[in-house]
Amino acid sequence: MSHPWSILFVDDDRDFLDAQVAYFGSRGHTVHTTESTQETLDFLEAQVPDIIFLDLMMERYDSGFRLAYQIRKQERLDKTPIVMLSGVARETGERFDQEGQGLLTWSRLDRFVDKPVTGRQLLAVAEELLAHGDAEPNPSTDDPSS
């Protein structure tokens, strides 16, 4: 690991969030957490993380997709990897997967990960997605407000 990341976790489960803060924090990364769509948008106004882990189901069953779409609309967040976490994809079967495939493209997500998920799995995803970005860290992480 060449340099610590700034990670944003968006989820409405505080236990899950705190566990990730401990897990990624112990590896030297900075972990930010938000618990709603609005809180997330407010946070992203102020700073741009290196990667976003986004829970699909919050206020609504598809809040994550809407939020991802809103994030991608902003040019300065255009390149930030977004990983969608969802606990419903597999169980609801084919139909959701088909819809999900369309939504993946539509909201330009980088990964789709099934919940429950371990920190170890998420770490692997982050390492893969950020492997190329290591050379040029996102300038916005130097924002004094972070």
């Binding site: 899950f16 566990a19 606990g87 429950p116 920190g119």
Partner: peptide
């Protein structure tokens, strides 16, 4: 959700 949370806490 609770299973995921418990798993993360144990991790």
């Amino acid at each position: 959700s609770p299973l995921g949370a418990v798993r993360s806490l144990i991790e």
